[in-house]
Amino acid sequence: MRDAELEILAKKTIRADILKVGHHGAKTSTSTTFLKYVKPKYAVISVGKNAYGHPTKEVVMNLKRAKATMLRADKSGTIVFEGNGSSYTIKKSK
């Protein structure tokens, strides 16, 4: 997964306000290098109760260091961003 992130970064500059965290927050996703360039304001983690320990402590710490607001499906339920091209709102429903 991190190889894919590096491949994306090598091709062009990328920025995003909203990042869907890769692979439910597994340790092979959402590297510090990727976060450094993307600079997300929000990081959405699609995760539920699981035996894999997702999201991993490493990814959670990476997101905290990047100052991204984490939104987790296991804690907030459904997370929806609605936008008009210049602004967006966040809706959560358990």
Rank of each mutant, 00 (worst) to 15 (best):
T69Y: 06
L6Q: 13
N62D: 04
K94T: 15
S86Q: 15
A10S: 15
I45Q: 01
M70W: 00
K11D: 15
G85S: 12
K20E: 13
R2W: 10
H24S: 13
K91L: 12
Y52V: 04
S76F: 08
T33D: 10
A4R: 12
T28A: 09
Y37W: 08
G77W: 05
E58F: 00
V47E: 14
R15M: 10
Y52C: 06
N84D: 15
V80Q: 07
M61R: 06
V59L: 02
I8K: 12
K41A: 03
F34R: 07
M61H: 06
I8C: 14
N50I: 01
R15Q: 13
L19C: 11
P55M: 00
H23D: 10
K41I: 01
G48V: 01
T56S: 05
L35R: 02
D17E: 14
I79F: 04
T28M: 10
S93P: 06
S29D: 13
I18R: 09
K75E: 00
K36Q: 08
I90R: 11
S29A: 11
A10C: 11
E7D: 15
I79N: 04
K11W: 01
K20Y: 09
F34G: 04
K11M: 13
T30G: 06
Y37H: 09
K57V: 01
K94A: 12
K57E: 05
D74H: 00
L35F: 05
S87Y: 13
I45G: 01
I79T: 04
N62E: 02
V60C: 02
M1F: 11
K41F: 04
T78L: 08
H54A: 00
E82K: 15
T33M: 11
I45T: 01
K12V: 12
N84P: 14
V44S: 01
K39G: 09
S93W: 07
R72W: 03
M1R: 15
Y88C: 10
K57F: 07
T30S: 09
K94G: 14
T13L: 07
S76R: 05
L9R: 05
A4S: 10
A16S: 15
K64R: 13
V44D: 00
R65T: 03
V21A: 07
K12S: 14
T78K: 12
F34M: 09
E5N: 12
M61S: 06
T89L: 13
F81A: 05
H24N: 08
N62H: 00
V47A: 05
E58S: 03
A10E: 14
T89E: 13
Y52Q: 04
V44R: 02
D3N: 13
S46D: 00
K36Y: 11
R65P: 00
K57S: 01
G25S: 10
S29K: 12
F34T: 08
K75A: 03
T69F: 05
K64D: 03
V38R: 02
S87G: 09
L35T: 03
G25C: 10
G53C: 02
A51T: 06
T33W: 08
K92M: 14
H54I: 00
K91Y: 07
I18G: 01
K41W: 04
K41N: 03
G25P: 11
K91M: 11
K57N: 02
S86G: 11
G22K: 04
S93M: 11
K36I: 06
Y42S: 04
A4G: 10
